[in-house]
Write a protein that binds this DNA or RNA. Sequence first.
DNA 1: ATTTAAGCGAGACGGTACGTCTAGTCTTTTG
DNA 2: CAAAAGACTAGACGTACCGTCTCGCTTAAAT
Lengths: 218, 218, 218, 218
Amino acid sequence: MSDQEPAPAPPVAPARPHPDATRRSDRSRRAIYAAALALVSEVGYPRTTIEGIAARAGVGKQTIYRWWSSKADVLLEAFLDLGEQAARAAGQDPAAQAIPDTGDLAADLRAVLRATVDELCDPRFEAPSRALAAEGLVDEQLGREFVAKLLDPSLQLYVDRLRAAQDAGQIRPDVDPRIALELFVSPLAQRWLQRTAPLSHAYTDTLVEYALYGLVPR
Amino acid sequence: MSDQEPAPAPPVAPARPHPDATRRSDRSRRAIYAAALALVSEVGYPRTTIEGIAARAGVGKQTIYRWWSSKADVLLEAFLDLGEQAARAAGQDPAAQAIPDTGDLAADLRAVLRATVDELCDPRFEAPSRALAAEGLVDEQLGREFVAKLLDPSLQLYVDRLRAAQDAGQIRPDVDPRIALELFVSPLAQRWLQRTAPLSHAYTDTLVEYALYGLVPR
Amino acid sequence: MSDQEPAPAPPVAPARPHPDATRRSDRSRRAIYAAALALVSEVGYPRTTIEGIAARAGVGKQTIYRWWSSKADVLLEAFLDLGEQAARAAGQDPAAQAIPDTGDLAADLRAVLRATVDELCDPRFEAPSRALAAEGLVDEQLGREFVAKLLDPSLQLYVDRLRAAQDAGQIRPDVDPRIALELFVSPLAQRWLQRTAPLSHAYTDTLVEYALYGLVPR
Amino acid sequence: MSDQEPAPAPPVAPARPHPDATRRSDRSRRAIYAAALALVSEVGYPRTTIEGIAARAGVGKQTIYRWWSSKADVLLEAFLDLGEQAARAAGQDPAAQAIPDTGDLAADLRAVLRATVDELCDPRFEAPSRALAAEGLVDEQLGREFVAKLLDPSLQLYVDRLRAAQDAGQIRPDVDPRIALELFVSPLAQRWLQRTAPLSHAYTDTLVEYALYGLVPR
DNA sequence: ATTTAAGCGAGACGGTACGTCTAGTCTTTTG
DNA sequence: CAAAAGACTAGACGTACCGTCTCGCTTAAAT
């Protein structure tokens, strides 16, 4: 029996075990993040290339291929890093963002959705997040990462706020907050992503009203 | 206003006025549609290439470039054509699909959303529509075409049904149907597109219930 | 009869059947020859790259890969073409070069070897022919082509001249001309190729004398 | 003191003064020789890489770059070492190889050339010596080293033997041995290097005969 | 006996070129 | 004159090595 097959691979070994991460160049990592975000903003995602990122970052291509599996993967990490840095710059604790709870659920939701509308129109975020969302639609693996790292954490904030409202008797106790939040978040997401209709503060206010009080006459 | 396009382009003339359409080969057009849909299903959108479509369709590349502006454009037309053929095969009039009106709005919405869930899981439709949606997120021109030709017509059906319900006093008269429909359509769209959570008939039933009657206690 | 099986390959079929040669761009072919020869002269063979040739010739890389199998192959054809053009420019018939026959064999050989020495020192020829010879030492396939197309034709001229001398009784009738010619040609070749010792007209004169009359006393 | 300017270099100091040779690892040196020779034999010279040699030898790349200037340089030393070891294994004194002198010059030359033919066909020697010769054609510095360390010592043996023959009156006193030896050595070298024709004992016998007694009738 | 300080295995780094693939254009031939 | 065929320029892909540059680790000489 032959014994020279290269593959069998011990069960736990990862397919492409990251090389020695302790020797990784932080300088290069940052430069790559910056280059990726800049290029996506300037020339758009499809015309952003790995070669272009490497050249702009002053980095060898292999340094990108060594640490990331695809252009989208680079951009995802760059975007996450951007978010962390922004959070660190603004608030102190990058993990302590919550929807405010003034006791007035409707007002709180209106405020956070208005802020979301403003953020979605910020050109710094638009190009990369659109590109990542698009790539995630088609590339399931990336999509799941995108959802897990970017989308779910945001949605969880709504779950928390709605639970609090439930505890205060402001939301029907039988309502599933994970579904309920979609009533105002998903329409906004779809309008922005697919440009099915324009965004505005009035629009999100309306969404909150409809969602909280329903469409049928009381 | 943009000012950096390289090609001067005569003021009003379209960049590439379609050549004489009367002499167009129908055989080639159909072969291209079939090849495009087949390739997207088989190898996925990113690995579907113009060259591949041409080769599979037994067609010169130029024949594709002559009549379409991009890979996405080919796929969009192919998909529209597929929809028309399916409609022609099923119902009679491809333009006469409406949401049934049994008088029970909740039941009608539940039914149509359940059918939509089933359709979204049909693998024949999944690959191309996902690909088109993704491309549309990033390519604004294509996105608008996608929305105008595929999405808006479907949404209009909901507008019509909700208007009828409004006339019957089943929906508050001050509700904007174009916004209202998003309460149950957008969540479904987002779960499917971004895989944020699984789809099921129970889920869409819940959406209808929340949207119609609101989240707060009555 | 079927002809699309990928593997077995009928005896005569070339491994990589050249694409339709009738559509080949002559302009590109010439530009590639010129670029290859220029680069080898300017930067040397090892630093001459396919990319460099393509860039200099204003040609896509694929056009090189389409018609040649390697850098050495390009250079070999370019060099052959150069030789043909030079011959066409000088004499009329590119195939009618012969060693002169004045009746004095020794004088004729001295003359042609002196001319060879001069040619070997011509820097236009030195770089490419050295490079081809070197590549041919290691790449057997190329080496055989090099010998067949460049070396053998030249050697055949010596065979012809020596045969004539044999007919005139100036060379022993039992001598094999194909071996005899090596007595003066190979030493010259080795000194030039391997730089084992300097070249000069006196040296080649000496070679002719030793070879014709032997080393032992008469 | 700055140390990173690339160019000026103190007048006499060698560009890369060998590091402390007393601390050199003999184990690594030997492993590198073995790996280089093995790889050249197995995959050929062009596909032999410094990285490959280092990996095979279980050595860091820098250890190679520290002691040698190029792949060819490694191979040259490895080959010289191989020769020395072979000589040490066979005869006792690696420097005392001489062409035998039985008094019969023709017979002695025939014998040594026959042995040379056999050695040239030994696959252990063929790949590396061919590769070194090829590299030396193009890289003048390496070529001169190759000639000085490998070729010239061998040729000197012929010079010595021919001088002895001259002293014995078997060779014309006006003959230059350094040129005379090329009459039989160079043809053999060319046939082997450039594969212009097959090698055989009969062939070298003929060369000796022609060279000693000349081509013209006596 | 400890402290240098070099060579060492290892491998990440900025790069260059590879050979392949596809884009989109252009040209030639066929129906 | 549309279409099939396919050669063309252009350039990104992902890989392989280059030669340089740290990292810790041994290991021998100089303290």
